[in-house]
């Protein structure tokens, strides 16, 4: 029997019609063991999340090499289920570019993750980072919040054609800021990971910027991936649009092939 995506959410059955990609996730200390990883995979299987790209809290805390190595180790264990973000910071411009090159030389990383650290993303301290991004053509996900995108869109415009994902788009209900930023920045994508689920917000974003620039991420293990996927499953959108948000946009951004996944 075939169900709509909404019906799958209503019934609590895994999404099997396409491989769901989680474009914004974390992997941290308390999961970094056999049981933790097994639990993560079980949860992904129960919802139908085929592949998740993670960064680590260690890197967020400026332990870049250790944190990125932890993400890489997870990918080595389960290359068909996980990808890794290389996480660096503009507050360490002396080491960030080399760390990005180191990570991507390994072949285990698929994107660059940045956090807001009181330095605007178009600050000269980020110049070295954007140089490497342009050279290696790396998709970038950044934590942004509420009214303050900290010029992430401006930075995106210095790297035309490279996907820049604005994390937590619409947070603090500032969805218009994100929409406006996306409308003036053709390579800016709106990442939906956010603890709240403002009524009609996803639909408004899709209408304004187009379904091809809205991307799903869960921000797990900050909070529940099972909650986050419901935001899209129940959205007042067609299943084709939901598939774009949950799968095909990220597949294109991270250059993932359907055949890579086994559900």
């Amino acid at each position: 029997m075939s169900y709509t995506l909404k019906e799958m959410g209503q019934r609590g059955v895994p999404i099997t019609t396409f491989p769901v990609i989680d474009a914004h996730a974390h992997f941290d200390f308390n999961e970094n063991n056999e049981a933790g990883i097994a639990d993560r995979l079980r949860r992904m299987d129960r919802t139908g999340i085929a592949w998740t790209i993670v960064s680590t809290g260690l890197s967020l805390g400026a332990e870049f090499k250790r944190g990125n190595d932890r993400a890489a180790a997870l990918v080595e264990l389960h290359p068909d289920r996980f990808g890794a973000y290389c996480h660096v910071s503009g507050n360490y411009p002396d080491i960030a570019p080399a760390e990005i090159e180191r990570c991507f030389a390994s072949g285990l990383f698929k994107g660059l993750k940045l956090y807001q650290t009181d330095v605007d993303f178009d600050d000269p301290r980020f110049d070295g980072i954007w140089e490497v991004v342009r050279k290696l053509r790396i998709p970038v996900l950044a934590h942004t919040w509420g009214d303050n995108l900290t010029n992430f869109d401006k930075a995106a415009r210095t790297c035309p054609g490279i996907p820049f994902l604005a994390g937590h788009a619409g947070s603090a209900f500032a969805y218009r800021k994100y929409i406006d930023a996306a409308l003036r920045t053709p390579n800016l994508y709106l990442d939906l990971s956010y603890s709240r689920e403002h009524t009609n917000m996803i639909e408004t974003m899709v209408t304004a910027v187009g379904a091809n620039r809205v991307v799903w991420g869960s921000d797990v293990a900050t909070f529940s991936m099972e909650h986050q996927i419901g935001k899209v499953l129940f959205a007042d959108l067609t299943d084709d649009v939901k598939k774009q948000i949950l799968y095909s946009n990220s597949a294109e951004i991270f250059n993932l092939k359907f055949a890579d996944f086994t559900n």
């Binding site: 959410g9 209503q10 689920e197 403002h198 009524t199 529940s224 129940f234």
Partner: peptide, 19 residues
């Protein structure tokens, strides 16, 4: 849910997908 500000869909799947 937190309606009308917050949509219930995620809360429903939060429980429905739970083990």
């Amino acid at each position: 849910s937190g309606l009308p500000d917050f949509s219930p869909g995620g809360m429903i799947t939060h429980v429905m997908y739970a083990d």
